[in-house]
């Protein structure tokens, strides 16, 4: 079944979009419901995954327009108690290295963020990305170039300790 096969993959993309696993799961659920409703009108199965990406992207962009969802949290998990066996300094450093790019990504404009995720995480071609985003290939190329520039700048800012968040 499509939902079982693709729920995890979609949730990863959704997490990269929004930066929160719980919201990501909500987005995937909404996406799967929408896909189910239009299933009979979908064509070949190999195009369904890209259609799912389109639905996910639009669902996320729609959600972002809702006032109560405009602020995106950077971290989703807060530990209840400290674990004495963990070297906090080392853990923080590792976690920081791991998250800094994603944190920087979350500061980008939504559509720039989406282009980078579709191109470099989902490994879609320029043409496929354009289809998913319902825009031209030229827009994908320019958004990707600008997105990479903005991402570099954001990583540099975050590494310098400027913890601002859009």
């Amino acid at each position: 079944m499509f939902a079982r096969e693709h729920a995890r993959t979609l949730r990863r993309s959704a997490y990269l979009f929004c930066g929160d696993w719980h919201t990501a799961e909500d987005l995937v659920q909404a996406t799967l419901v929408k896909i189910y409703r239009s299933w009979s009108r979908l064509g070949k199965r190999d195009t369904v995954h890209n259609y799912a990406r389109t639905v996910l992207l639009r669902t996320w962009l729609d959600e972002k327009r809702k006032p109560w969802r405009r602020r995106e949290p950077v971290g989703s998990e807060v530990p209840d108690t400290a674990d004495p066996t963990i070297d906090i300094a080392e853990g923080v450093s590792r976690s920081w290295d791991r998250d800094v790019v994603h944190k920087a990504l979350l500061t980008l404009a939504p559509r720039q963020r989406a282009v980078l995720i579709l191109r470099y995480f989902d490994e879609l071609s320029v043409a496929e990305t354009a289809r998913v985003m319902r825009c031209t290939e030229g827009t994908v190329k320019s958004q990707a170039a600008r997105g990479l520039d903005s991402l570099r700048a954001a990583v540099a800012r975050l590494s310098e300790g400027e913890l601002t968040h859009a």
């Binding site: 990269l16 994603h102 995720i117 470099y120 995480f121």
Partner: peptide, 8 residues
């Protein structure tokens, strides 16, 4: 970027 997204 690819590696960082995978790691995230």
């Amino acid at each position: 970027l690819r590696d960082s997204l995978r790691t995230a």
